[in-house]
Design a protein around this nucleic acid. Structure first.
Lengths: 343, 343
DNA sequence: TAAAATAATACAAACGTTTGTATTATTGTA
DNA sequence: TACAATAATACAAACGTTTGTATTATTTTA
């Protein structure tokens, strides 16, 4: 029908009312410097003409985009989704939008994303490093430029200068394993993930420390570090692990929900009874705990709250007048144990 | 240490080299209009000074942000996540970023998000309407403004003027039910979701038509429209439905994976054997099918591909010179049945 | 009723790019 | 060596806002 007319701008309203652009801008801002009657005329005309402000121009002028850039290793892990939900909720309350990018578990993509976020599109950055990430110069560069950034989850101590939020992984697994010990279990198997990830190292540490604290012998044979990150439904590694075992475990502590599930399936198939013969604990509590029969006891991570906390830290940085003076904050969130039928 | 210096811009490079901003801009663009030696000097200086282009200024000048706005009803449904993954993958290939917002299943939030996307921050919009969405004026407004938009999933036929992509829901459920019938099942129960959602209506339609096509009597008693959208792990509705039933079903077709899972749990608890006494089919195939024992046969939706297709349509619109001439496209994607142990 | 005080509005620079056109510098040709 | 042809660069407007300062209009005060 009508030709596509370019969008209405302040100038168009100004021209129509025969006033200046500045006055129109201030009128729409409800600035007391413009007469009430003028403001009303402007508002009416703006609506009539279908005016919508140009966000980009606003951002250029104000130096703020109100966008937070988020980089996660992947989309299809409930943990990250849940964290993002928390981020979004908190951000939305404070008038920020979030722009999520996946690094697809690749250091190169992570770097690329970070560089793209350096271009002023986002006011601040939230990053969960991939396990490939060994070098931190790309992160330090951001910090040194004074761009607000908060890291979470898979963070090493070495990454100085940046706020970060994580789970008390070591404590969490310590108390989960201790729980099993207190229930009288002694031959406790451990199933972890790829060793490169800090979180898995910490969870393993908690296991070892709990065993030692209670003077329980540690059998190498009962320890498995899975090499697959992916959420497979059949894991030959886990299957072989239990099949080839000469000791009969009476409990298994696993480092993810999925490993827990795979463990339960394997054990049931091998004739174990859960929880009579063997107890199983998962880690995460991100929706899978209740799916299986028997339901699975899990270490519950406050993922949503984590997202909120991360964003709180970031927005604090954003509101700080001098970013360079910022003193690094490290927050470790507590976990809890959700008891179900597998223990 | 050093005071926070504001970011390096073209002007700074220009001043240092005593050349004009335009030349610097063109040099960085590898425009043949600038001498090779100049280009090299500029590049070197830019790197040395740590120049990063300002995306916002670029966008204002070019009228393009290279951002696609995505509005989904919620984050915590694997279907939407999977679609977003597809969107992101395709968008990334074509140099777009995605900005995801959740409408939290609320029409008001949906409208709010759409309005915010009208402000020129995004080049185009992808929207999955909530089931609350009855009015489409907010969508029509976008279309009339000439802003490229593609709808997906829960779309009614009435929403004219906008491209949309959906699953062949009716055909999918028709053939799933037909599959059960061909296996000799006759007392086939149906479990759907809230009736307001178009997808559930279509899936119900497919069920009815398959039954009719094969002259199988339809028992009202075997039909349940769940009122809960949420991914609950205990659904009293479903439990009651099967408990109170006077007919013993020999198959159940459910409209989501989760309903399928809940159905299996309930049936096992009530003493049914799966698949001997009763077959169960889920809908979605978004990761839950393989979790349970027995594993669940599912209608598989091509969610990732859907995301890619949606984005393809959107980017086509973005590349069209005259958006107003655009002729609406409706794409229906085929599904498949993934056979597992529950049938 | 003229000067002072204040209210209302206009002007113009700034945000950091891109890009069409004008200008200057460098070649090539006769 | 003068003149055109071309290469290289500079100038300036534009993108749509915001905001400090200047200007004009209105009201107050003596």
């Amino acid at each position: 029908m009508t030709l596509k007319k370019s969008r209405v701008k302040l100038e168009d309203i100004a021209r129509k009312l025969n006033i200046s652009i500045a006055t129109v801008s201030r009128a729409l801002d409800e600035n007391p410097r413009v007469k009430l009657s003028t403001r009303e005329r402007v508002l009416k005309t703006a609506t009539a003409m279908g005016y919508t402000p140009n966000q980009i121009a606003k951002s250029l002028s104000s130096g703020k985009t109100n966008i937070i850039g988020v980089i996660i290793p992947r989309y299809d892990e409930p943990f990250f989704i849940e964290v993002c939900r928390g981020i979004d909720r908190y951000a939305h309350k404070h008038n920020y939008k979030i722009l999520i990018s996946s690094s697809r578990n690749s250091f190169e993509f992570e770097r690329e994303n970070l560089i793209s976020f350096e271009r002023g599109l986002v006011d601040g950055i939230i990053l969960s490093p991939t396990h490939e990430t060994e070098m931190f110069t790309h992160i330090k560069k951001i910090v040194n430029k004074g761009i607000p950034i908060v890291l979470f989850d898979n963070v090493r101590e070495e990454v100085a200068g940046a706020d970060h939020v994580m789970i008390e992984d070591d404590k969490a697994s310590f108390s989960a394993v201790e729980f099993l010990i207190n229930k009288g279990r002694k031959k406790i198997a451990f199933i972890g993930g790829i060793k490169e990830k800090q979180v898995f190292q910490d969870r393993f540490k908690g296991y070892i420390e709990a065993m030692k604290a209670h003077n329980i012998p540690i059998h190498e044979e009962l320890i498995l570090h899975c090499s697959s990150l992916d959420r497979e439904f059949e894991d030959p590694e886990i299957h072989e692990f239990f099949r080839g075992m000469s000791i009969q475990p009476d409990a298994v502590f696993t480092c993810t929900d999925n490993y827990g599930l795979l463990t339960m399936k394997t054990l049931l198939k091998l004739g174990y009874k859960i929880p009579e013969d063997v107890s199983v604990i998962g880690f995460g509590d991100l929706g899978l705990g209740d799916v299986f029969v028997p339901s699975m006891t899990c270490v519950s991570q406050p993922s949503f709250e984590m997202g909120q906390k991360i964003t709180e830290l970031l927005i604090n940085q954003l509101n700080e007048p001098n970013t360079m003076k910022h003193r690094k904050k490290v927050i470790k969130l507590k976990t809890s144990l959700v008891l179900r039928d597998s223990t």
